[in-house]
Design a protein around this nucleic acid. Sequence first.
RNA 1: GCGGGCGUCGCCAAGUGGUUAAGGCAGCGGCUUGUGGCGCCGCUAUUCGGGGGUUCGAAUCCCCUCGCUCGCCCCA
Length: 441
Amino acid sequence: MTKLQSLRGMVDLLPDQTRRWQRVEKIARDQFLRAGFQEIRLPLIEATELFSRGIGETTDVVGKEMYTFLDKGERSCTLRPEGTASVVRAALQHGLLSQGPQRLWYSGPMFRYERPQAGRQRQFHQIGLECLGLSSARSDAEVIALAWSLLKGLGLKGIVLEINTLGSAEDRQKYRKKLVEWLSTHIDELDEDSQKKLQTNPLRILDTKNKATKKLLNEAPTIQSMLSQESELRFTEVQQLLKILEIPFEINHQLVRGLDYYGHTAFEITSDKLGAQATICGGGRYDGLIEQLGGPSTPAIGWAIGMERLMLVLEAIAIDEPNSAASEMAIPTNPELYIVNRGERAEKTALLIATKLRENGLLVELDSSGAPFGKQFKRANKSGATLAMIIGENEIEIGQCRIKHVKRFSDQEIDQALSLEDYESLVKFIRNSISNSSTKS
RNA sequence: GCGGGCGUCGCCAAGUGGUUAAGGCAGCGGCUUGUGGCGCCGCUAUUCGGGGGUUCGAAUCCCCUCGCUCGCCCCA
């Protein structure tokens, strides 16, 4: 029999990982809350059409990376490859846009059928936000600032914000024409891949990694030259605002992004600690998408952070700097109290006490092995608990339990006898002992 | 979809054609049903990702396949 294992590109997150994930998610949630963003939870499966219409037929995501299948009713269904299209769909379906601008965030798994590599999985997780119904350059700057301060707040170093403008739809139309004309005269100098894109999606030739093509592109016309005055002013304003916010950025006119719906501001945040897949956060303005999906013409902007990539960076930092916040996010939460217990009556009492103490907010691990005391103490030690409570037959006889420090051995044992029934005093005593123990150490 | 590297226990590994596949860590049990950091003893891969072939003999050689990994494409 072959060993059962997870599907290619599908990754399990074990407790070692989930600790850090939960802490990151909490920090993100708190920040979204403070910024007035509300959570939206969406299905993982959508009608295929949502993505083909929303993201663009010629994009790689739609063209070759979607998990698409027919359900039992013969409907074409797709595991969502990204979050924005679903957010827009939900907003339209429930009439959210008629209630004014929407500030929404989401998190969860996305699916793309690609060959896995460093920082890339078939099921991966994004945490993202979308701001629907606002068109100002200020909203661009605010949204970018949220991504930046979240990443900075998590302690990331060596990250770079790159921005570009893709202009209005008309600007892009004109530029596209000009670019195709120019590239056509240099078609022999283009790499094979870019030659194909010339037909399907010429703008995406701009962010090629092919060195020869890159060099050639230095001579090519830029989108800047084709911008309308409004588009140009808008981009300038975004830059000014980022400067006021003291967010460092680089302008990268080659930054295009692979989803068709982007226009005007597009941006990426990359890290030097990742391999070839260096983008942690990507986003931009998508003023045309909502209308394209059948809604009213509505401006919008958003971004998504790749959780796995973020975690990779955090792990790298944690290794470089063992005392950093990034490092602390991996430290497990140890029990405050470990209950060592043995004997029929003692075991019942211990279960009851564990429950009561937990109800009072303590972090309690109960040894339910029935093993000899020696074994239980070993486990108490390994659990990392601050205190151990001992309940055996003797304690039951006198109606008192004993509590001692786990981490300090012979010195400074508390080893106090306490009533088994007075939970209030127990809790108080435990709390005191823990705070004393942490101030002393 | 296309290239490169790699698959020996939960983890790190030795072994590169010859009888029973080292070792370390972790785990489990014992010394130790009333007290834990240490120590000592014992146990833990009928099998080397899987399948086929070559051979008297294969973890070692060949073929296929699966998986992992890095890169291309693209993206988070």
